[in-house]
């Protein structure tokens, strides 16, 4: 096994994902298989190759800065409209630290 059950639980924790025990077992199996396939990339020589972080093509210079003009925002009422819990112009969440 390339990935242990402990690692699966650790990664789920990093991802803020509550998993059931069944899911942990299932993902351990799936991730193991997929990571084994991904490890094949080590067969290919990439020293001196630049990483491609974005699609690049030959083109004229793109103006990446837009004019800095004032425009109205959507307003807090609309911004909060989809919130599961909100009041007085704020998103409400459960206790951050348990006392």
């Amino acid at each position: 096994m390339k990935i242990t059950e402990r690692e699966v639980r650790y990664v789920a924790d990093l991802a803020n994902l509550a998993l059931t025990d069944d899911e942990v077992r299932k993902f351990q199996h799936d991730l193991d298989e997929i990571l084994a396939h991904m490890d094949r990339l080590n067969e290919i020589q990439t020293s001196g190759v630049e990483p491609m972080t974005q699609v690049v093509y030959e083109a004229g210079e793109t103006a990446t800065l837009r004019p800095d003009r004032e425009r109205p925002g959507i307003g807090s009422e609309l911004a909060l409209a989809n919130a599961p819990l909100a009041s007085h112009g704020y998103f409400k969440v459960p206790e951050v630290i348990k006392r």
Binding site: I3, E7, V8, V11, A12, L14, A15, N16, L17, A18, L19, T20, E23, K26, F27, D30, L31, I34, L35
Partner: peptide
């Protein structure tokens, strides 16, 4: 953790796990 655990389907969870790893 619970919102995401209950909300995402299996494929999204699998990809979040892989990507996080």
């Amino acid at each position: 953790r619970k919102t995401r655990g209950e909300g995402f389907g299996a494929e999204c969870k699998r990809r979040i796990m892989l990507g996080t790893y």
